[in-house]
Nucleic acid binder design. Structure first.
Length: 266
DNA sequence: AACGGAACCTGAAAGC
DNA sequence: TGCTTTCAGGTTCCGT
């Protein structure tokens, strides 16, 4: 959606309403100045990061890029009208010019302020350090298995390491480990190649299912009030396991809530 | 080096 | 009813 909204446009003005989404010490004025009057060249994504390369201010030069991370509660939305008042939880806005004099306003909402909004000249080191993205690069089960062999930590927190795979978060790690019938607490280096293949398939399928299901223009997070839970085990603790009908358990692993079936995940 | 836990934040639901 | 506690699609820092 962001590609659709920003593609072919020029940022006429940008506003950051809360400096806490910026890097420490960076001012809203500086970021706004860097974004103003820049043409959007593309909208890219790797893992949980969005990257929006922008035109240079002088021809032949190199432009900056807007990097956006949604944290846990961030989202980009299109304002119904370009002149709309700030939306609830709005933390930044981009006002855009399109061909034929049309205007558009895209807003960044983030109640919990865990998102990031950065406009560097060079790619962020964290962007360059991301592992393979399952949707962009696919998952190479052999490579993933080799990577798991280097870690003694429990397999679930290893999956959450963005240098191992880019974009896997708590829900997808939880769902894939259930699909692969692997106990989340098992040391990563004890996971076999056969199990890693099941894990790769579980991740691919969980991601594909979510993308297929999200046909709305506006994303809705499962934690939002009134949102349906489309997941197989995440958020279903205490309910019968879809496979064996015994109750799903929940524990905290490396600080993250983890739902699993103690009977069929070994 | 590698790990667990706390910190960063706000809002909503559950608990009392 | 209203105050308190808990928990949340993430990352990073700090101490052991």
């Amino acid at each position: 959606m962001l590609e659709q909204w920003l593609g072919g446009s020029t940022i006429v003005s940008a506003h950051v309403h809360d400096a806490r989404i910026l890097d420490e010490g960076v001012t809203t004025a500086k970021v706004q100045r860097r974004l103003r009057d820049r043409a959007v060249l593309a909208v890219e994504r790797r893992g949980k990061w969005l990257r929006v390369p922008l035109a240079p201010s002088v021809k032949g030069g190199k432009g900056p890029a807007l990097f956006s991370h949604l944290g846990m509660t961030g989202k980009w939305v299109l304002a119904a009208r370009p002149d709309d008042e700030p939306l609830r939880f709005e933390k930044a806005r981009l006002d855009l010019a399109l061909p034929r004099g049309r205007r558009r306003s895209v807003r960044y909402l983030d109640p919990r302020l865990f998102g990031r909004f950065v406009v560097p000249d060079e790619d962020l080191p964290i962007w360059s350090a991301l592992g393979p993205d399952p949707l962009v690069d696919g998952i190479d089960a052999r490579a993933l298995h080799a990577r798991l062999q280097t870690r003694r930590l429990a397999v679930k927190p290893v999956l959450l390491d963005q240098a191992v795979l880019a974009g896997i978060g708590n829900i997808y790690a939880t769902e894939a480990l259930f699909a692969a019938r692997i106990d989340p607490r098992r040391p990563a280096n004890g996971v076999t190649l056969a199990e890693t293949k099941r894990l790769a398939k579980g991740l691919d399928e969980a991601l594909a299912l979510s993308i297929a299901r999200n046909t709305e223009e506006r994303i809705t997070y499962v934690e939002e009030p009134g949102a349906a839970n489309p997941f197989v085990v995440y958020g279903h603790e205490g309910e019968p396991c879809p496979r064996c009908r015994r109750p799903l358990a929940k524990m905290v692993l490396a600080g993250r809530g983890t739902v699993f079936c103690p009977h069929c995940q070994r």
